[in-house]
Design a binder for these strands. Structure first.
Lengths: 174, 174, 174, 174
DNA sequence: AATGAATGAGACTTCATTCAT
DNA sequence: TATGAATGAAGTCTCATTCAT
């Protein structure tokens, strides 16, 4: 499964053959099929497992101000992503092709909705004049930074995060 | 070529067969090969053609202040994207799979570099304290919004843009 | 037609496309088909034309002794072959594949029969103890030398011919 | 592999489809590709295997006179050829098309060189006045007889061989 | 007489999947 | 649990041939 994730992330789902996965994992084709009934199922399990991280980024430690919670969410998101880069690479590569991801469409939508709600609520509490749109924008910013970080070598992730947090704080203070 | 773009954007490059393209375009399989020597060449031509738009978003009308130029760039970028949604969907879907896009790697890198330069220079002139990182962040934000716009139905693009421009103006004013 | 012969000889009949022939001949595909109804027909006409040479090698000048006639035949055969190497290369490349040559099978057999008759008769007159088998052997020798000459660069054709004629004379003198 | 040889020999390499081979061999198309990575590889393996026989024809039993060794070589050559007619048919059909055989070009050249050396050396020892050219001629004769034998039905191979050996002995005695 | 765009059958090859062992 | 030989559908691409102009 880890091997599969690695190959899917590097080469893309369609360009990776089951045979390649089995070979790299050091097991036989047949054994792979004992574990996963099909290539799509394998993908699905990878996706399901990978997305469990997301829930973690929602956890709210006690005693945080709205802004602090937003900061916490952002930092957590990127920390988890750093630990699982290949998964996120795969996820982003599948995102545009509705068909492959369709199996998880509902979950993805639910999670997106949850993220937006979380963001907008905290933005509202933190004083945003237009929390809904601000949340949408914030989500997009996080996503955009994430994607650039995953694609580009030597991306100055930490600095970008810090810079963004400063902007955010200023924005909310206005 | 338009048909191919449409199908590639919807289903992904690998999941779209040459036969499908020919059928949808209403021509025969063989004729397609009269125009494009291979499937990869077809993709390449689509990409080359599509990316020509980018240059437009760099044009600088006379007499704009730095901030106005940034605003102009952002608005132009999204306007062009709205006119060519399928291309950008395709582009983003290929982005994570280095191999397919490798043919254009150099051009892409050059363009990215140019965008960053353009942004950072204008940010500097507009008063940003940290124009390099601000540019990286801005680029990511634009990209993130673009991607959400391309994926999600009924995305409030205009409102997000306006909101972002306001934030930007505030940030620069600080 | 000359272009086709050249390409067929170099690359083989099956590995040469009609398009290639038309391109190299500087005419259009359609025009080629105005002249020859199909690729096989083109081949057939090439073969028919090329084999007309053979008849020349049968001509018997007046006043030659049997040995002299054999010598004349051999020299004529190789002289004609030198003038038409590509044809003979093509011919030999098709020889093993019964299907392609089937159209001319009858003519080929007739000619072979004629050659053998000519050789055996003159060998008999020249004193051969076993003219039939000697003719078969002689035919094979001529063919073998021809083929090596056509394949190998810098083949010492003249010396081989002279050497063979000496052997032949000795053989008949025994 | 035997099936492929048979079909290649009968119809030619280019006119034989992989599907046909698989069907005749009673296996599936895919399985063929488990054994041989491509059609050309299949051909190559056939050629390599087939040409191993040649080495046998070089073996020199003890205590043979130069003439006897030549006789032995000729008889061995034809005996091996009778056991492997299809291979030799295939080989001769490919001979004129340099491209296909290019993979083995070096080996073929080396073998030809070896044969010529062997022949000329023994011819010299057996008293030939011009062993180099005699060897070239002898090689061509063997090849010519071989080819006629492979092409023509009911070829009187044994008688031709005997007749040739007699001529050879006479020639050397002169 | 001349063109070349158009066609579609068929070639080689890959690959997810099955199943006897 | 583990193997990998076996299958055949489907993919990309080539090519002889046709036909409107």
């Amino acid at each position: 499964m880890d091997t599969a994730l690695e190959l899917f992330a590097e080469q893309g789902f369609d360009r990776t053959s089951i045979r390649q996965i089995a070979a790299k994992a050091g097991i036989s084709l047949g054994l792979l099929y004992n574990y996963y009934p099909s290539k799509e199922d394998l993908l699905k399990e990878i996706l399901v497992r990978g997305r469990q991280d997301i829930l973690q980024s929602f956890e709210k430690p006690e005693g945080l101000s709205p802004y602090q919670y937003l900061e916490h969410h952002i930092r957590t998101t990127f920390r988890l992503m750093e630990q699982n880069k290949n998964f996120w690479r795969l996820y982003h590569s599948l995102r545009m092709q509705s068909e492959v991801l369709k199996a998880l469409e509902r979950e993805v939508q639910a999670e997106n909705h949850l993220v937006l709600q979380l963001l907008s609520q905290n933005l509202a509490e933190a004083g945003s004049a237009n929390p809904t749109i601000d949340a949408v924008l914030m989500f997009a910013t996080i996503d955009g930074v994430a994607q650039h970080y995953l694609i580009l070598p030597e991306y100055p992730l930490q600095e970008v995060i810090e810079s963004y947090l400063i902007q955010l704080k200023n924005h909310l203070a206005t």
